[in-house]
């Protein structure tokens, strides 16, 4: 199942990307999801043909390698080989914050409900998981406040607090 986060709303969608193995032939004209290696071989041609292309990145792959082509990508899928492997969180944050990537960032692999809030906060907006969208949404919104800035642009506690102070001052003034 694929859950997407769009306009603050979690819902199930059909996956429009076809995953293509490294040695499989490229057919049809729909959107494809490739490994980094395959993308390096065939990506340019596919993009030139006007197809939507996504790249699947392993936890050890450096997200920096994608930087030059990011503007042309529709999707970056980040792998969680085990859910305790947290490298993809940093990759997602860098995609959003450093490279300003605004395409889909998808969590694939061992994607468990207890990580929903981590993923959403780090800028993931698509989740390949067996969990239903309502349960996923509840887990993602578990925390009413956050302490630190991250890629989801939620206001951290220190911003909320400053706002309270500002409002109080405004009322007094």
């Amino acid at each position: 199942m694929l859950i997407r986060l769009e306009n603050d709303h979690f819902h199930t969608v059909e996956d429009r990307f076809t995953a293509v193995d490294d040695d499989a032939a490229l057919t049809g004209d729909g959107a494809v999801l490739l490994s980094l290696t395959r993308f390096e071989a065939d990506g340019a041609a596919l993009l030139a043909a006007g197809r939507d292309v996504g790249v699947r990145i392993g936890p050890a792959d450096r997200i920096e390698a994608l930087a030059p082509v990011l503007p042309s990508l529709a999707l970056v899928a980040l792998e969680f080989p085990k859910y305790r492997d947290g490298r993809a969180y940093s990759s997602a944050v860098l995609l959003r914050e450093r490279y300003g990537f605004d395409g889909e960032v998808r969590a694939v692999g061992d994607v468990q409900i207890d990580q929903a809030w981590n993923m959403v906060r780090c800028g993931f907006d698509a989740f390949e998981t067996t969990v239903g969208p309502n349960a996923w949404a509840a887990a993602a919104r578990r925390y009413r406040h956050v302490y630190q800035a991250s890629a989801d642009n939620r206001a951290p506690a220190f911003v909320e607090r400053a706002r309270v102070v500002r409002d109080a001052v405004a009322t007094v003034g």
């Binding site: 947290g86 940093s90 981590n118 906060r121 780090c122 630190q148 991250s150």
Partner: peptide, 13 residues
């Protein structure tokens, strides 16, 4: 303490 509590990026180091 506040910065590190539920830090979304650094929970699975």
């Amino acid at each position: 303490r506040q910065w590190s509590t539920f830090h979304p990026e650094f929970t699975y180091l």
